[in-house]
Write a protein that binds this DNA or RNA. Sequence first.
DNA 1: AGACTATTCAAACACTCGTTTGAAACACAC
DNA 2: GTGTGTTTCAAACGAGTGTTTGAATAGTCT
Lengths: 239, 239
Amino acid sequence: MPAGPFQPFAHLHPVAPPVATDTRENVLLAAGEVFAHRGFKDATIREICERADANIAAVSYHFGDKAGLYAAVLEYAYAIASQRAPIEAFFAHANTPEQKLRAMVEMMFTRIVDQGRPSWHGVLMAREMVEPTSALDHVVTQSIAPMWKRMTDIVHAFLGPHASEAEITAAGNSIVGQILHYKHARPIIVRMQHGQAYSSEQIDYWARHVADFSVAGLHALRAAIDQRSTPTHDSGAFS
Amino acid sequence: MPAGPFQPFAHLHPVAPPVATDTRENVLLAAGEVFAHRGFKDATIREICERADANIAAVSYHFGDKAGLYAAVLEYAYAIASQRAPIEAFFAHANTPEQKLRAMVEMMFTRIVDQGRPSWHGVLMAREMVEPTSALDHVVTQSIAPMWKRMTDIVHAFLGPHASEAEITAAGNSIVGQILHYKHARPIIVRMQHGQAYSSEQIDYWARHVADFSVAGLHALRAAIDQRSTPTHDSGAFS
DNA sequence: AGACTATTCAAACACTCGTTTGAAACACAC
DNA sequence: GTGTGTTTCAAACGAGTGTTTGAATAGTCT
């Protein structure tokens, strides 16, 4: 067994973050792409190391495991995602619930569906929801749960204080589901809905549509809730 | 190479459908479960044959290939799905567009999210949309395209004659996305939204919610379309 | 019964995967 | 330079995969 220096320089330079050998970071970057593209199980260490110009054994040496590499990638992706496109930036000028909802939709489209930048963090999260790995616990507490909290808070503000928990989660699922559909069903969308699918303009259009569609759904749900919780006394009147 | 009798009894009894040896049908049934549960790639023919009490070589003998088995399963699932829960039954008493939409949502929930019966056809279709196999072409022309046509027809009826194609497909995606979310994100939904998730009552509730939510979204979109295509002439008025 | 085909079976083959190995190459203090 | 610890490398290992093989069994018609 190798000496296993999984935390290199741990006892020196307590300042600098991981610091990362060249190959270590190369493997991390390549692994991010491959994991995001193929998923944990279908990704092969050989492809990752080939893209990183590294030897197969590099994974075992630097990360111990395939699972260890995956965990490191998640950490790395989380770090650069929150650094490069911080969540708060999307909500900077969002004051009303509707503005917050639109910011939320835009952010999720940017992080999950858009693909240009090295932003595989959203993609990995989306994958983790569909086919969880052993890293799910960590992903949930670090990323998914806070995001879901933010979403349900917005929905709650829309639906008012009388909304039940079931209504809030159902509405949240409706919004998230619309967005994730463009990621999950991408192959079939590209195939059946011709036109230059997944261009930036197209994604912008979809994001606006999902926001509009959801706002209408939320307003209708709010109306039903209000009518239920404060029934009109002149019950004979039309709607 | 074996004699390869892929169409057994082809020259005899031109009447009876495949007739199917015991083991052939057993393998077909077991393969349906395993493919639906694990997906094409992660399903192993060893597990399939074990569940079917058949020898490993049975797949090669009866279906030629793992891909051949998968294609046969799709055909088989399509046949029993359209026999057991025929689509038209859902639309029997649906006359208005809204009733048709509700029937559509209910049907998709029943076929894809519900899990009781041997109804892996919907599950396999949903899988094929996310990670297509070589059978995608066939699945699209046989199942997905007709279903999508039905959906867009309903949406078109909702949105009126002035709706653009982009608006129709986006609205269709919003509806389908909401439904499929309950299938794809099932692990995370079960985990985060406690309570007895995926009970029959829960699924009914979700189906009703998705229909309500979508109807509201469609009405709002319709209003925007009508306002755009027949602009009010007293343009000075407040909206 | 006999001849012939269809079907089943245990075993093996070829391949890919993640992981390990032991030696070589490197870095750097002394 | 020598010595020590870190990092890379080609090669192999062991487990799991789909597929094939060739013999054994079951079935069916004459």
